[in-house]
Design a protein around this nucleic acid. Structure first.
Lengths: 114, 114
DNA sequence: AAATCAGTTCACCACTTGGCAAACCAAATC
DNA sequence: GATTTGGTTTGCCAAGTGGTGAACTGATTT
């Protein structure tokens, strides 16, 4: 029932950028320092740091600075929250019988694009 | 490996707005005309139509106009695509053993002795 | 035919986003 | 102690977003 959940807003907004999704992908393999994370992207560090800050403020990653390097690690809770919202919606449109019938009628006759 | 998928960009961007998420919730119960969809929200129709267009261009909903009323219905494919991306990431960070250990250490008060 | 109703379009506005360059700070390194 | 290295801050800019009000179109009702 939490339609106005700011955490969801932030999580989906953060995920809407390919750079940020790629950062999350990199962090799946384990924590990494900022510069190593930034390497694959064709942009300056300031721009990249903005993306990191978005991810951190949203709670999708956490960072810690030791010495002069800042290490980033993934923070799975928000990711799980976003996924569970989507799963909840899916469960819902699976629930209505007529809704399901309409879906079948409209989509099963054609070839869906994967 | 499709990090630069514009469809995902659009889907997550569309989901980042509470109004649009609420519209999707309403449509889970079945197709609805525009005005009925717009009723719960404290905004004019032009602003609401912009949200609907975002949802439609992203492929999250489909609309059809008969007479003077436009009926909207949900289009589950994009939703599934977004959810499966998240599920994929979750599967990944479940894969790394040290990553999993760090997660347990940081978030669970239990002892993960395998 | 006139009035209403459901959308639509248009012009405009405040605010955010995503990028840049340049200067700056602190920690390693030479 | 001078220099590189990793990160940060500060302005700045073009483009996009989310909203408004007013005018308009076309279908329905009276």
């Amino acid at each position: 029932m939490e339609n106005f959940d700011p955490a969801l807003d932030g999580a989906f907004h953060a995920l809407a950028d390919p750079t940020r999704r790629a950062v999350l992908r990199q962090l799946l393999a384990g924590p990494k320092p900022v510069k190593q994370l930034a390497e694959p992207f064709a942009m300056g560090l300031p721009a990249f740091l903005k993306h990191l800050r978005v991810l951190e403020e949203t709670g999708l990653i956490a960072t810690e600075k030791t010495g002069r390097i800042r290490t980033c690690r993934i923070e799975p809770e928000r990711l799980l929250q976003a996924e569970s919202w989507l799963a909840e919606q899916r469960a819902f449109w699976g629930a209505g019988a007529d809704r399901l019938a309409a879906y079948v009628e409209n989509h099963l006759a054609e070839e869906p694009n994967p």
